[in-house]
Amino acid sequence: MLSVITHTPEETEAFAAQAAKQLSPGDLIACRGGMGAGKTAFARGLAKGLGLKDRVSSPTFSLVHEYTQGPLPLYHFDMYRIDGFEELYSTGFFDYLEQDGVLLVEWSENIADALPENAIILEILSIDETTREIHLEGGPF
């Protein structure tokens, strides 16, 4: 397990960028943590660390954002509105699993039964307004 305490979104981003160096094609990061916990900052760092030039934003309304301008693509999902297997199927989630990219899944609690066994669990806990405790577990961590 890899853990860290960060004090600003920039520190969270830097931590994610470091962690990205250890990821391989096909890895899936299942994210837990509420609104405003810093998931988008983490995603931004991850994309930067993977060498991607795309602009990162929260996929709440579009369900998935693809970042492909770099060596290893990142597929960024938000499962907040997903309520059942049919809906998950129609996001194309299972098709992305077959591709050689990294998947970051926000609100992974909603698709707990559909996550692969080797998923990397990312937990972001809000300690106070700006302090975050971040844990990465599974896969290379």
Binding site: D83, E86, D113
Partner: peptide
């Protein structure tokens, strides 16, 4: 497209 078994769909939702 084919509907998937009911039980499995409920299982996913239950974890919400």
């Amino acid at each position: 497209y084919l509907r998937l078994p009911q039980a499995e769909r409920e299982l996913l939702a239950k974890n919400k």
